[in-house]
Design a binder for these strands. Structure first.
Lengths: 226, 226
DNA sequence: AAATTGAATTATGAATCCATAATTACGTCA
DNA sequence: TGACGTAATTATGGATTCATAATTCAATTT
């Protein structure tokens, strides 16, 4: 929300914010694997900070849903179960659809051009089989659509959920068939955006999301966290 | 998410959680008015706690969006502007619609009966002009629908946004016209739920939400926080 | 009189310390 | 050998302390 303390400030970021970003990355990238206990003291030593900012950071990550705090027992990295997945999917679907509708109302030609460029580059990476680069551009495109929707509240909500899934998406390798399908969907996404067809875009994005979810679901079923 | 530390624990709640709940209420009820600075030290004395748990609580509330932290400058209660409102509305609308659809898929006859009972009581309060009691039951009904939807992720997201608006809804007096309209909509909500008509319920809930928003918007326009 | 500088005050950020709950390790007994 | 109970250890929750950034306010200058 919009409460600005009177004066714009340049101050350096507090330690706990720095820690939140570091820890979030560590969780998303699997350095801190799901279900593992978070060794508060060890982390403090590793980062060279005292427990106070670390504890503040853990409180923040708990609200974001990435870790779970148990009174007097410490912090655990939250697991992602198939059940969780089935809960998160409809919520993200609703948000994703909304982002598509809003983006079509508001996107500028310039923003569209940027997305188109990223799309072309992404397709190149797909053709060359460069998974990591593909994923980077993919993320960038979805981020840009969210940006074009021009709704900070929506973006924040979406990103919070996305972070919880990204851990699994990070590990799950898409099959060739699903990958091809995803690229085809991206073509449709671009077309709908260009036509400013919000209803269409919402539908495509939702389908695209389902694709992602199936990938994660299969991975979870195999590498089973229960 | 579902990570349970191995053993279920009965332990007493940490202080900072207690504080989060207290402060959230104080903000929602206007004891800490929007835009005001939060006097950390004073609050610590008032509650008889040290600064450590208080600061942890402030971090949590900042993630929830109820307060705004400025490095080295302290915490302010976030304001709600009309611009914020227009951002939050579509997001809540999407979540509200989803909750309606899911509730229709899953609600049990027993849950429906409870909601019907609450509805009857609420209508009584409306007829008698008891605003406070009406609001309490109203909130209870919406809570029950969210419960019936059986999606904890959805519920958490919705409640976070709702808390940010409740401050204004708390103060804004609905006009007689809007109040009557709201009650009429609640009749429709009940009917759609009973018929398990998810599409219909989603539409009604969304319209109902718009009603609420217009009330808040008018109040904001008058008692203008910009 | 208004504005600017600098000292005094106050509040925040972070580290350390202490009490207590939880876990682990060990020893005893069935 | 295995289960139980108790002591030792460890980790967490909370209070306190210290350093530093921000604010206040008075004094000086224009």
């Amino acid at each position: 929300m919009t409460t600005e303390p009177n004066i714009a400030t340049i101050a350096r970021r507090p330690l706990h914010m720095e820690l939140v970003d570091c820890l979030r990355d560590m969780i998303v990238e699997g350095t801190l694997p799901p279900g593992s206990k978070i060794p508060e003291r060890d982390l403090c030593e590793r980062f060279g900070v005292s427990r106070t900012p670390m504890r503040e950071a853990l409180k923040v990550l708990a609200v974001e849903g990435l870790i779970l705090l148990s009174p007097n027992r410490g912090a655990w990295v939250s697991k992602l179960t198939i059940g969780d997945l089935e809960e998160v999917f409809p919520v993200m679907g609703a948000l994703e659809a909304l982002s598509g509708e809003l983006a079509c109302e508001r996107i500028t030609d310039e923003q569209l051009a940027d997305i188109r460029a990223a799309h072309e580059e992404m397709v190149e990476h797909y053709r060359a089989g460069r998974r990591a680069d593909y994923f980077r551009l993919n993320r960038q495109i979805h981020h840009a659509i969210l940006e074009a929707a021009g709704n900070a509240t929506l973006a924040a909500q979406y990103r919070a959920l996305d972070a919880r899934l990204r851990r699994a998406r990070y590990l799950a390798n898409v099959s060739d068939r699903r990958w091809a399908q995803a690229v085809a969907e991206h073509e449709q996404i671009l077309a709908a955006l260009a036509a400013r067809d919000g209803t269409k875009l919402a539908a495509v994005l939702k389908q695209h999301l389902r694709n992602k979810f199936e990938t994660v679901r299969e991975w979870l079923a195999d590498h089973g966290e229960r």
